[in-house]
Amino acid sequence: MTARSNAEGSEHVRTADALLPGPGQRALRGLALAYVLVLVAIPLATLVVLAFADGPPVFVERVTDEVARDALVLTLGTGVLVGALNVLFGTATAWVLTRYRFPGRGALSALVDLPLAVPTLVAGVMIAVLYGPSSLVGTTFAAWDVEIVFAKPGIVLALLFVTLPFVVRAVEPVLAEIDVAEEEAAIVLGAGPWRVFRTVFFPALLPAALSAGIRSTGRAIGEFGSIVVVAGNIPFETLTAPVYVFGEIESGAPRAAAAVSTVLLVFALALYVGATWIERKVGARHAS
């Protein structure tokens, strides 16, 4: 996107001057930039600086504290698992929603967007109600000695709820854009369903599904509202990093919270950059 814009740069600048009023243009632009700096850059910079304020050894100590380290490992582990499950089930869902014709398809497709609008805390409450220890499902699973809520499966379910739209919405347009003739060509040449998928669909879907899966992992490792309700927050068991951060704030240790936050921030940024890189690369190939 950036490359293309730059190529047309000179043309854009001229039009740009026409769009926001001349004298006020710089002022308004400055306002937008200042807003973003004050609201995002300065607080996050403060967070990172204060995480290291007591020296790197203390920072290391804080993030390798047994409880903190375990929370980080759990967060990353569930995040990656949720990303993988999203790639799998999200692609399948997008496939069914774009390629099948059945009554209620429109409503189902709209529902997939619901997690974008439902407060994540409410999502957590919903999961706790259905799968909680005193619910019908919860008692059934308890009979087999399987705990869902206040255990890891609850965390995964909550994360799947809040990240549900990511892969579905990324894959759908790609699926819709694939030339039907390409699929038909493979069939006429004698390819079976699996072969058709591998040849025509898989290479086209992979980048979109992968980058959206990575984004869902990024979203999952920061998730707080739904986890706080379903996880039970037991150290070494179901205490995730964001909940640990909250606990440290509550117990008056903001710098320990900042240290763990910084680690989370680095992971989140790395995932963000990775997903963006994949999207850029695909975009560049489509353009050529």
């Binding site: 950036t2 967070l47 964001p242 704030i249 900042a258 963000y272």
Partner: peptide, 25 residues
């Protein structure tokens, strides 16, 4: 470029972390 990146950043950051950042500030 900075404006674009910073405008995206809140999507990648945990809300608890945002609260903490302002608390520290």
């Amino acid at each position: 470029g900075l404006l674009g990146a910073l405008a995206d950043l809140p999507l990648a950051v945990s809300p608890v972390m945002i609260g903490l950042a302002f608390l520290l500030l």
